[in-house]
């Protein structure tokens, strides 16, 4: 007998009597959307945040604040004036010299400062993890209150499987050495949120 059959057989013998699933519906919509909470939480987890009027304003901020990093790449054609958009089909390993990556998330979560983005908006999966600095655009109107609301939104946004999706909450970090927090472990060393209307 294969291990698969073996395991399933033992499980069927040993499974306890059926227990019903609890209702998780009451958790959704339990709390109001609070943009200030999103802003504060994102800063607490090590992120920087700007409230930007539009793409032109984002470009203006990038020119001022990220002038020291010439190698910018973006997933957004609207920002091709300031960042490279010719990398969409290259070998992802070649993206390792990216200094700044600029992308746009689908929505943000107020309770933890995370944003949800899928492969479609990432263009390449590695692009969100490999740059030195990550700049993420997200609309204030897209915010949800909690992770329960987040999965309601995900169900609305995606009909089928999304290939790959991630909640990203701030710069990569570690506290493995004596619990001292260090920003910049293996992913981006900084994350800047551009909060659009």
């Amino acid at each position: 007998m294969s291990s698969r059959e073996d395991i399933l057989k033992t499980l069927r013998q040993n499974q306890p009597p059926a227990v019903a699933l609890p209702d998780t519906q009451p958790f959704a919509g339990m709390k109001p959307v609070n943009a200030d909470q999103f802003i504060q939480t994102f800063k607490t987890i090590g992120g920087a945040l700007y409230e930007a009027r539009d793409y032109a304003h984002v470009e203006e901020i990038l020119r001022a604040d990220f002038a020291a990093f010439p190698l910018k790449r973006t997933t957004l054609p609207q920002l091709s004036g300031i960042a490279d958009t010719s990398w969409f089909t290259v070998d992802p390993h070649t993206l390792h010299d990216t200094e700044v990556m600029i992308a746009e998330a689908l929505f943000g979560v107020c309770e933890n400062g995370a944003v949800w983005i899928t492969e479609q908006q990432m263009v390449q999966r590695a692009a969100m993890f490999i740059p030195e600095h990550l700049v993420m655009l997200v609309s204030k109107a897209s915010l949800v209150a909690t992770m329960h609301d987040a999965y309601v939104r995900i169900a609305e946004l995606h009909n089928g499987p999304y290939g790959f999706g991630a909640f990203i909450a701030g710069p990569s970090k570690t506290a493995d050495i004596e619990q001292s927090l260090v920003l910049g472990a293996h992913g981006p060393r900084t994350m800047t949120m551009m909060l659009l209307p």
């Binding site: 939480t41 987890i45 979560v109 309770e111 933890n112 400062g113 995370a114 993890f129 992770m147 999304y162 790959f164 999706g165 991630a166 909640f167 990203i168 909450a169 701030g170 710069p171 990569s172 970090k173 992913g187």
Partner: peptide, 8 residues
């Protein structure tokens, strides 16, 4: 409140 990355 959440890990930096929750990858699906």
């Amino acid at each position: 409140p959440i890990t930096t990355y929750s990858s699906h």
